[in-house]
């Protein structure tokens, strides 16, 4: 099976990958460790442990995908970098392709389209 060549900025296209979760959280603004943990838990339901969180932060910082900001009251916020944004975009597109394929093969897309169409018809009724 052909595998894509791993580049330093390539992210795993898995929605539960800590690096993807952190970058997704940072898109909405800079955050420190505790704020990241809470935000990720809110939007994904995944509770990242401190070891996992800082393992991912270390890798992301090494690869230049996030940037540290000055410490505020012993907490250091991080922001997403331009290459981090590009890497996340690529990962999200890969996931989109996977979701599209999955939906198509499971027949969910036709169903979703029919439901959407039905709702629009009902909504347009006088």
């Amino acid at each position: 099976m052909a595998r894509r060549t791993a580049s330093p900025t390539h992210l795993s296209a898995r929605s539960n990958d800590p690096t993807v979760l952190i970058l997704t959280s940072l898109v909405s603004g800079s955050k420190h460790g505790w704020a990241l943990t809470k935000d990720i838990e809110d939007f994904s339901g995944i509770a990242l442990g401190p070891g996992t969180l800082y393992g991912a932060i270390t890798r992301l910082e090494e690869r230049g995908l996030i940037e540290p900001l000055p410490v505020e009251d012993r907490r250091r916020p991080y922001r997403i970098s331009a290459s981090g944004r590009a890497a996340l975009t690529e990962a999200v597109r890969e996931m989109r392709t996977l979701v599209d394929t999955g939906e198509q093969r499971l027949g969910l897309r036709t169903l979703a389209r029919s439901v959407g169409c039905g709702s629009r018809i009902i909504g347009s009724m006088p």
Binding site: H32, G33, W34, T37, P50, L53, Y54, I57, T58, V71, R74, R75, R76
Partner: peptide, 17 residues
Amino acid sequence: SWRARYAEELTTLLHDA
């Protein structure tokens, strides 16, 4: 070397949590 860079933030996170 890792602790010199991240120890303060990680211990603060543990304290917050």
